[in-house]
């Protein structure tokens, strides 16, 4: 029988929000005023995302990285992280803005192995560079493809 020890101490949404605001300044992490059950919405600075994720994983029991998605906002790129806590039953959505000419952000694969292929896919589709990623290569398209298809300036083929 596997012991599931992390289910012992759970935090409520208010406790999580309070801990984040006490740990980070408002420049680094900003919690948005949008209330839905079991959800927290926040934005983060691109230099503090790794610190925030480490804090979430180690201090607040967020043990599952659900999703990492890239977004092309035309004037900037965004990376959206959905990180779930099995213990707290909370999902946190973190939006990080990246400049359009230099889309680089720290990889969170060292924290959660599940983020590995999500980050590769974001690189494949948008050309966002994840620093310290173990293998940042194309995953869905062929190796020799020259374009990043999900960027808004790429027009899809067809009719």
């Amino acid at each position: 029988m596997t012991e599931v020890t992390y289910l012992t101490d759970a935090f409520t949404i208010d406790q999580v929000k309070e801990k984040i605001t006490s740990e980070f300044s408002s420049d680094e992490v900003k919690i948005l005023d949008k209330n839905k059950p079991r959800r927290i919405y926040c934005t983060a600075d691109k230099d503090s995302i790794l610190k925030l994720c480490t804090f979430l994983k180690d201090a607040l029991n967020f043990e599952h990285c659900s999703c990492v998605s890239g977004v092309d906002r035309i004037d900037c790129f965004q990376v959206v992280y959905h990180i779930t806590s099995y213990a707290n039953r909370i999902t946190i959505e973190i939006v990080v803005d990246l400049p359009h000419d230099n889309p680089e952000v720290d990889s969170i694969t060292p924290l959660w192995g599940g983020a590995n292929w999500h980050e590769r896919e974001a690189y494949d589709m948008f050309g966002i560079i994840f620093k310290n990623h173990p293998k940042l290569a194309r995953i869905l398209l062929d190796e020799d493809v020259q374009f990043f298809p999900m960027r808004k300036d790429f027009k899809s083929g067809g009719l």
């Binding site: 398209l141 298809p149 790429f154 899809s156 083929g157 067809g158 009719l159």
Partner: peptide, 13 residues
């Protein structure tokens, strides 16, 4: 003929 994916960049029509 490519079907629902007629405007895809990666599907052979």
């Amino acid at each position: 003929s490519g079907g629902p994916w007629y405007d895809s960049y990666n599907v052979v029509q």
